[in-house]
Simulated assay, not measured.
Amino acid sequence: MAANPAFSALFDRDGATLVDLTHPMRPGMPVWPTHPPFCQEVAESYERGDVALNHALCLSEHSGTHFDAPLHFIRGGRSIDRMPPERFFGRMAVIDARDAAPCEAIGTERIAAFEAGHGPIEAGDAVFFHFGWDRFWDDPAPQDRFLRDWPGLSGAAAALLVQRGARIVGSDCLSIDRFGSTDFPAHNRLLGADILIGENFANLGRLPAFADLVTLPLPIVGGSGAPLRAFAILRPASNPHPRTQA
Rank of each mutant, 00 (worst) to 15 (best):
H23D: 12
I121W: 11
F89K: 07
V19C: 05
P27R: 04
G49K: 00
E47R: 03
A116C: 11
C103G: 14
L53V: 04
G77Y: 09
I95W: 10
A101N: 13
M92N: 11
A16H: 10
M83I: 15
I121P: 15
L18D: 11
H55C: 15
E44R: 03
V127D: 13
M83N: 03
H72Y: 05
A97I: 15
D81T: 07
L21F: 07
P27S: 01
D81S: 03
M92H: 12
R26N: 07
G90I: 12
H55P: 03
Y46V: 01
A113T: 15
A93C: 15
F88D: 02
S45H: 00
A100L: 02
G117M: 07
E47M: 01
R82T: 07
A126G: 06
G15D: 06
H118C: 14
P120Q: 12
P120M: 09
P70C: 00
G28F: 04
G107M: 12
V42A: 04
P30G: 05
A52V: 07
G77A: 02
M25G: 10
M83W: 09
G107V: 14
A97D: 14
H62T: 07
R78Q: 05
A112D: 14
P85H: 07
A123Q: 13
F114A: 06
N54Y: 08
W32P: 01
V19Q: 01
R98W: 10
P37S: 09
E41A: 13
A93T: 08
Y46L: 05
G117K: 09
E86A: 13
P27C: 03
R48D: 01
R26M: 11
P70T: 02
V42S: 07
